[in-house]
């Protein structure tokens, strides 16, 4: 499955936007956190998990989805939220904890919910899988179109929820796709130090579903594999496990010293940054030139800046609003 010119530009634009968003969050996050790093300080307090480097997973998969399809994402959700079409102003405002945020600041960066595009995420490893299976079941029971996609890191493949959810999805032949963003590290523990198989897509055999491995963080390789998996789910052919080899260019969270990485790893990864790489591909294909690329980048950056200004200019809910919305 090959992306159209339009899809290729869409994927590139969303990767650029997502990366610029992370870059801006990174710099704003550090405000008030130097010289002493205290996570509670600054305009964006709390943990922050940046998605730099993993953008191909988000765009390659979400290029095949529409608003009606369901996505459950992880504690590292920004790139996926951007690609799924989560409302950017409200998303950034939620990351700042503001009243205008997706949830008025009740959720924050690890708990982004946008029902308009059926996006949710959770800060607990592997726990978005069950809800994705349930959303797929809901579509089947209601006779409604739409598939569910559960994103996870490679660490989640060692969770019980992974085994239970894949088995259940396969037993009931549900329209769901499980996507592993394998960035090689579960915080500081290397995949090979904690995973009994060299590749997690092999585990699909245990559930009688196709397991597909996409090497090299390759945008169009991901697009092709995800396209087939999602098309099969839409056709009623059941679930697929997709394992994408990706990498994170940042730490597990901001403040991570990344001492666990072998010397030179990070520098090597920077050389393989998927965004300049895909830019080169599109330039070579004649879909971009220097001018149109600059315009695209400027437009994406302007969009992010608008969202950040929106968030910065928004108020907080009153402290007592903490008591609201426990029940509806």
């Amino acid at each position: 499955m090959k992306p159209t010119a339009e899809q290729r530009l869409w994927m590139y634009r969303n990767m650029v936007l997502s990366r610029y968003l992370e870059t801006r969050i990174e710099s704003i996050y550090m405000e008030g956190k130097t010289p002493v790093f205290n996570m509670a300080n600054g305009p964006i307090p709390g943990e922050m998990h940046l998605s730099n480097g993993q953008e191909p997973c988000a765009v390659g998969v979400c290029a095949h989805l529409t608003a009606e399809d369901v996505v459950t994402a992880t504690h590292r959700p920004h790139h996926i939220a951007v690609a799924k079409g989560v409302e950017l102003d409200a998303m950034v405002a939620e990351i700042f904890g503001k009243a205008t945020g997706l949830s008025g600041g009740h959720g924050g960066h690890m708990h982004l919910f946008d029902a308009r595009v059926n996006f949710a995420c959770s800060g607990i490893v592997g726990q978005g899988l069950g809800p994705a299976v349930g959303a797929a079941l809901s579509r089947k029971l209601q006779g409604k179109s739409g598939v569910a996609v559960a994103f996870m890191g490679e660490g989640a493949a060692n969770q019980g929820a992974f085994h239970e959810s894949l088995n259940l999805a396969a037993v009931w032949k549900l329209p769901v796709v499980f996507v592993i963003e394998d960035n090689g590290w579960g915080i500081s523990v290397a995949k090979e130090a904690c995973t009994a198989v060299p590749n997690n897509h092999l585990r699909a055999a245990a559930y009688g579903m196709p397991g597909v491995h996409v090497p090299d963080n390759d945008v169009e390789g991901i697009f092709a594999a995800a396209g087939e998996a999602i098309a099969n789910a839409r056709k009623g052919l059941g679930p697929t496990l997709l394992e994408i080899e990706t990498f994170r260019l940042a730490g597990h969270f901001m403040g991570d010293s990344e001492d666990y990485r072998p010397a030179g790893e990070k520098e090597g990864l920077q050389q393989r940054d998927p965004i300049p790489r895909y830019r080169r591909q599109l330039l070579d294909a004649g879909l971009l030139d220097e001018n149109s690329d600059a315009a695209l980048v400027n437009e994406a950056q302007a969009r992010v800046e608008t969202a950040i200004r929106f968030a910065q200019n928004s108020e907080f809910l009153s402290p007592e609003a903490a008591l609201d919305v426990v029940f509806v």
Binding site: A132, V133, A161, E164
Partner: peptide, 25 residues
């Protein structure tokens, strides 16, 4: 279809109920 025996997988089927409930069931 509406009365579903599950595997002994409480994490999956209770999680699935959350997903189904959020999706209108």
């Amino acid at each position: 279809e509406r009365v579903r025996d599950t595997p002994i997988s409480e994490t999956a089927f209770i999680g699935a109920a959350v997903g189904a409930a959020s999706d209108g069931m």
